[in-house]
């Protein structure tokens, strides 16, 4: 049976209570050409100790979701909908509330550790500073906590490394420091935006293993934003596929890769070099992403979709095709008519 729910309805998570509930989130920017719809009615949840992947190509809005959760969007952004973290509403929350959450209950890891580390302070000082920004503790207590997390993320000889400036460390070690800083206040949620994209593959494997170990040991939930489907396949419990500011599909990782329900997800997987096609014969996705400033009444993928038919001119509802597997596509609404 195919059940159809309203697009804005909150999904059920794959077990556990929802730590983060994003419901009907829309973000727009005014421009000369009209309102640019960066996010449109985005809903998903992240449960405690879950690793949820947010995937999509450049400009699909996956980093805007992170900005909206963290309250770090530009002032010009028009935000509608709801972002609830541990039951607390974050959309339109006071700046002081968000400041208290960031780096504390919600931590972030970004792609390039050089931008999140201050080159003029030692790596240890920066972590200790994160402690003191959120707790009234002495410098020596803060330093002790910093040393503990540096050891926990696998920095050899933390006492010596504590005083090193970031540039003394390799890229992989710097990313470990960034993770240590993210962990030091024992966050409930880590938002990791392309955390391994700048790293070599053997170092990437170390960092991904570290993130999974932290989830297992501490129960930290992770929202992993990535363009890399292989990384997402290897570490995520559930995956959310985004296209042009909308959610195309939400599913448990196994279900999404085995039976992608949305033509966009399916096309992305087919376009991967590992999809088994001969050289020169990778299926491509024709066309380009629509202009998000224009009127976009229907499915945003329709102009590039091989399965387009009349209903696609209006926006598809979210259809549940399997347990916890939701697809925003008219093909999935009535499978009898369109197999």
């Amino acid at each position: 049976m195919i059940a159809v729910s309203n697009l804005g309805a909150t999904e059920t998570t794959g077990g556990g209570s929802s730590l983060l509930d994003v419901t009907g989130l829309s973000v727009g920017y005014r421009s000369d050409r009209g309102l640019v719809s960066a996010l449109d009615d985005v809903s998903f949840a992240v449960g405690t100790s879950e690793v949820v992947g947010l995937v999509g190509e450049s400009g699909c809005g996956k980093s805007t979701v992170a900005g909206a959760v963290l309250g770090l969007l530009p002032r010009s952004a028009q935000v509608h909908g709801s972002v609830r973290f541990a039951g607390e509403e974050l959309v339109a929350a006071r700046a002081s509330v968000l400041r208290h959450l960031r780096g504390n209950r919600i931590a972030t890891i970004v792609q390039d550790p050089t931008t999140s580390l201050d080159p003029t302070f030692s790596v240890g000082q920066q972590i200790a500073e994160t402690v003191r920004a959120h707790a009234q503790v002495t410098r020596s207590v803060a330093k002790q906590r910093a040393l503990e997390v540096l050891a926990e993320v696998g920095i050899p000889d933390p006492r010596t490394r504590y005083d090193d400036p970031p540039h003394r460390l390799s890229g992989g070690m710097r990313q470990r420091v960034v993770i240590a800083a993210a962990l030091v206040n024992d966050p409930a949620l880590i938002i990791a935006d392309e955390p391994t994209t700048a790293l070599d593959v053997t170092i990437q494997a170390q960092i991904l293993a570290l993130l999974l170990r932290l989830r297992d040991d501490r129960g930290t939930a992770i929202m992993l934003i990535s363009h890399d489907l292989a990384v997402v396949a290897s570490v995520c419990d559930r995956v959310v596929t985004m296209y042009a500011g909308q959610i195309a599909e939400r599913a448990p990782t196994g279900s999404l890769f085995a039976e992608p329900g949305h033509p966009y997800t399916a096309a992305l997987l087919e376009a991967l070099p590992g999809s088994g096609h001969a050289p020169g014969e990778l299926p491509v996705i024709a066309g380009t992403v629509p202009d998000l400033a224009g009127p976009l009444p229907g499915c945003r993928f329709a102009t590039r979709c091989r399965h387009r038919f009349e209903p696609c001119d209006t926006r598809p509802p979210m259809a549940t095709v399997a347990p916890h597997h939701d697809v925003a596509c008219w093909l999935r609404v009535d499978t009898a008519e369109h197999p």
Binding site: A205, L208, S234, F257, A258, L269, L272
Partner: peptide
């Protein structure tokens, strides 16, 4: 062998624990 094992595969049914290399290049 270590390089191949470290490379993530876009198939969650073939998840393996990579042979993690210790240390850096």
């Amino acid at each position: 062998k270590a390089l191949l094992s470290a490379a993530p595969v876009s198939d969650p049914s073939r998840r393996v624990v990579p042979r993690l290399l210790t240390g850096e290049i």
